[in-house]
């Protein structure tokens, strides 16, 4: 007999034969390659991975992955992915979505999938614009933003995806720039490991319709000063010189400089992503300066499949029915001769 050899994948194993058709320079390429590189690290079999998407630029994603995949209809990917996962809990199921797909047309499914905590992973490509329909404002576009459907400026205030997700009781929320492939890969691996619904918001630049919308957060020369990359158990420190930090002042987070006004590293808050109470996580996702990135919340909770499975086992153990015939011929039956 041949020895069973565990196949070691590389990113090439996850490339499909389809030509990638996003605009040149789009951050979607970065996310695609980060995913292809993350998958070998996850230790899942190729045939046990399913990508599900709705409609939009991001939703072309499944075609480019050499796994199982479904490019479904606008906003409904969370429902479809839930069905796939409940049908076969062994699968690693990924929802690839955008700000319009997840939070406009699919808003209802988005909050309910988070509430239920099925072990799915959702990657939200947030470019604050509608790309595929060529440039209308989205539910994350900022007030005043000039788009094809708001030529004088957008009047609709936006959602903050993290705030919405935590409000819907998301157990795992991460945010990451669209230009840092290694960090994206690492977060994808963590999301895969997490048991429950994981939501990863990628700040994704749209080079055509909303170019540069995250420049002052994600550009290489500013990102260390403008972002705080959170890691569980580590102090909330940021800045090129690692001298800035967050403290809690009354009910607000405040940026302080270590070494000034008697502040030492010991005064800086330590990030606890695993805390059940989402109050601090809510404050972090709402921060405008610095913008919180990394894994902001990662609270371990029972998943829907675990609950369903336990209940099914219990019902099976107590039931006198194993075959449908047992049911059909049970209770009040009578003979006609």
């Amino acid at each position: 007999m041949e020895a069973i050899v565990e196949k070691k994948y590389t990113y090439k194993d996850f490339e499909s034969d389809q030509e990638v058709r996003w605009c040149p320079g789009c951050d979607d390429y970065v996310i695609l390659r980060s995913m292809q590189k993350a998958l070998p690290e996850m230790g899942v079999k190729k045939e046990e991975v399913v990508f599900v998407s709705g409609i939009g630029c991001s939703s072309r994603f499944p075609y480019y992955m050499n796994t199982y995949g479904m490019h479904s209809i606008h906003g409904r990917a969370p429902g479809i992915a839930s069905g796939i996962k409940l049908a076969n809990p062994k699968l690693s199921v990924w929802v690839m979505t955008g700000d319009g797909d997840a939070m406009a047309i699919g808003g209802n499914h988005f909050i309910h999938v988070l509430r239920r905590n099925i072990d799915l992973n959702i990657v939200l490509f947030n470019n604050e614009i509608y790309g595929l329909t060529k440039g209308q404002f989205s539910p994350t576009s900022v007030v005043g933003q000039k788009t094809k459907s708001s030529p004088y400026g957008n009047t609709q205030p936006p959602f903050n995806p993290g705030e919405l997700a935590l409000g819907a009781n998301a157990r795992f929320f991460a945010r990451i720039g669209g230009n840092v492939p290694k960090d994206i890969s690492q977060i994808l691996v963590e999301a895969h490991k997490f048991k429950g619904t994981s939501l990863i918001e990628v700040l994704q630049n749209c080079v055509i319709f909303n170019d540069g919308c995250y420049n002052n957060i994600t550009n290489k020369d500013v990102k260390e000063d403008k972002q705080i990359y959170l890691e569980h158990g580590k102090p909330m420190i940021f800045g090129k010189n690692r001298d800035k930090g967050l403290i809690l002042n009354k009910l607000k987070l405040e940026v302080v400089t270590i070494g000034e006004n008697g502040i030492t590293e010991a005064d800086i808050l330590v990030h606890n992503a695993k805390e059940k109470d989402p109050t601090m996580h809510q404050m972090l996702v709402r921060l405008e300066y610095p913008v919180a990135t990394g894994i902001i919340r990662s609270f371990d909770d029972v998943t829907l499949e675990e609950r369903e499975d336990a209940l099914t086992k219990q019902v099976k153990a107590n039931s006198k029915f194993t075959k449908t015939n047992d049911l059909f011929f049970s209770g009040e039956i009578y003979m006609v001769n």
Partner: peptide, 15 residues
């Protein structure tokens, strides 16, 4: 919609 969407997912997965 989620009712039928979940059923479509389950059908894809072999139920």
């Amino acid at each position: 919609i989620a009712g039928i969407a979940s059923a479509i997912g389950a059908a894809f997965a072999g139920d």
